[in-house]
């Protein structure tokens, strides 16, 4: 059986390692004597559209987010988190073209799945035309099937630093295909004086690919530190993802920030003429209560 374990195995050790990093960094800084603005020709860069969209046959609404990038060496003119509201966003696939409409409440361009359905195995293309005429496009193929979760085990582990749940998700990998999986989780809770159940993202983000373990009975595990004691239940999701979905999320996991001792991590994009990710996935759910 192939396995994938939670990424916090060495957390403690790494915390200690941080100290070493600072000792080293301080030693290097001692040596740097002179700084000034570099007198070099910087590459010409302009703002580009940023597209995010993760489509799934089970969704009732198809959503695409559009924002803009900000060139670092140019005077800041855009808020990178502000949604672009005046773009022309369209989706094309088997059923032809469809226009998505901006929804100011969700800040996404949207279309109902009843008007434009997402089908297993089909390929879709998103096209964004900005008000200045700039065009960005991206394409993704929906995986051929959803992969059901066979079972889940939850083990509560207490250690010096607190209590966590060791969660293991078991499933049968699809034979004869390159599959890319992500495990995600949603917790549900109610608050006093609020009738509705609220849902929160448990921020579980484990990725696994079957490249060397095709068709095996597989497991993905994670360590989950429950944020509240009043959780009603948890929904564990197994996403069978498109390569673009997987590669993008993988590159975010590798993000090294400002670590001066690491290779700069390049963020994956499948958007032509811009940045971001247009991915597809199928999902299966397993609800558990502790």
């Amino acid at each position: 059986m192939s396995r994938s374990d939670g990424g916090l195995e060495r957390k403690k050790e790494l915390e200690k390692m941080k100290k070493i990093k600072y000792i080293l960094f301080a030693s290097v800084i001692l040596l740097s004597s002179c700084k000034r603005e570099a007198n070099v020709k910087l590459p010409a860069t302009k703002s580009h559209p940023v597209i995010y969209g993760y489509i799934c046959p089970d969704d009732t609404v198809i959503r695409i987010k559009v924002t803009q990038s900000q060139p670092l060496f140019e005077t800041s003119t855009t808020d990178i988190y502000a949604p672009v509201m005046d773009a022309n966003v369209s989706l094309s696939g088997q059923q032809g073209n469809a226009q998505l409409v901006y929804n100011p409440l969700t800040e996404y361009y949207e279309i109902k799945a009843t008007s434009y359905s997402i089908n297993l195995g089909a390929t879709y293309k998103v096209m964004v035309i900005m008000s200045n005429g700039e065009i960005a496009t991206a394409e993704t193929q929906v995986p051929l099937s959803a992969v059901p979760i066979s079972t889940i085990t939850v083990e509560t582990i207490t250690e010096k630093y607190g209590t966590y749940d060791l969660l293991k998700v078991y499933f049968n990998d699809v034979v004869g295909q390159n599959n890319y999986y992500r495990m995600a989780m949603v917790y549900a809770q109610t608050f006093p004086f609020q009738p509705d159940t609220t849902y929160g993202d448990a921020n579980v983000n484990e990725l696994y690919s079957d490249v060397t373990h095709d068709g095996e009975y597989s497991l993905i595990s994670t360590r989950y530190y429950p944020p509240f004691d009043t959780i009603l239940f948890n929904d564990v999701y197994l996403f069978n993802c498109s390569p673009s979905y997987f590669n993008y999320h993988k590159s975010l996991l590798n993000y090294s920030g400002d670590n001066p001792f690491a290779e700069p991590s390049l963020t994956y994009t499948n958007v032509k003429g811009g940045f971001g990710c247009f991915g597809a996935y199928t999902r299966s759910r397993f609800r558990y209560k502790k």
């Binding site: 590459p43 860069t45 703002s47 580009h48 940023v50 995010y52 993760y54 987010k65 924002t67 803009q68 990038s69 900000q70 060139p71 670092l72 060496f73 990178i80 988190y81 969700t106 800040e107 992500r182 995600a184 989780m185 949603v186 849902y199 929160g200 993202d201 921020n203 983000n205 929904d235 999701y237 996403f239 979905y245 999320h249 975010l252 993000y255 920030g257 700069p264 963020t267 940045f275 971001g276 991915g279 996935y281 999902r283």
Partner: peptide
Amino acid sequence: LSSYAVEQHSPVLGSGLGYTYPSSVND
């Protein structure tokens, strides 16, 4: 060269853009 916001896919609507680490990345 440039910086842009990150939206990781979240199973919960509204937990995407800028809510995860990293909230933005560089190109």
